[in-house]
Amino acid sequence: MEALVASAIGIMTAAGIYLILRLRTFPVVLGMAMLSYAVNIFLFATGRLAVNMPPILEHAGVNTPGYTDPMPQALVLTAIVISFGMTAVVVMLSLGAFIEAGNDRIDLGDEEKTK
């Protein structure tokens, strides 16, 4: 299981890096979303993997053999919501740039670059 998760994180990271290196805004946004998935699972996995051990304390109806580490889960939960906020800002920036400039390149034009 660990090998599957680790390889999935690795593949998603690679896909994310590849996409953020593109030259147009939309693939970069996709790449950042992909990196967010990878990073969130990475953080989550630092609590080590466990099956059927949700950190819900035992009471009526819930019966588990133990509990997984709740801390990374709490961190990742807010991270997921924050990454939505970040994606929204980036999308808005790219949209604004597109409307203002008429194209969706992420690099400055050659004439604007510093020499």
């Binding site: 660990e2 090998a3 998760v5 680790a6 390889s7 994180i9 690795g10 593949i11 998603m12 990271t13 690679a14 896909a15 994310g16 890096i17 590849y18 290196l21 990878a38 990475f42 996995a45 630092t46």
Partner: peptide, 14 residues
Amino acid sequence: LAIAGGLAVGGLIY
């Protein structure tokens, strides 16, 4: 570069 990054992150978490 992407593959190197993926290998690094994947290896680290593994």
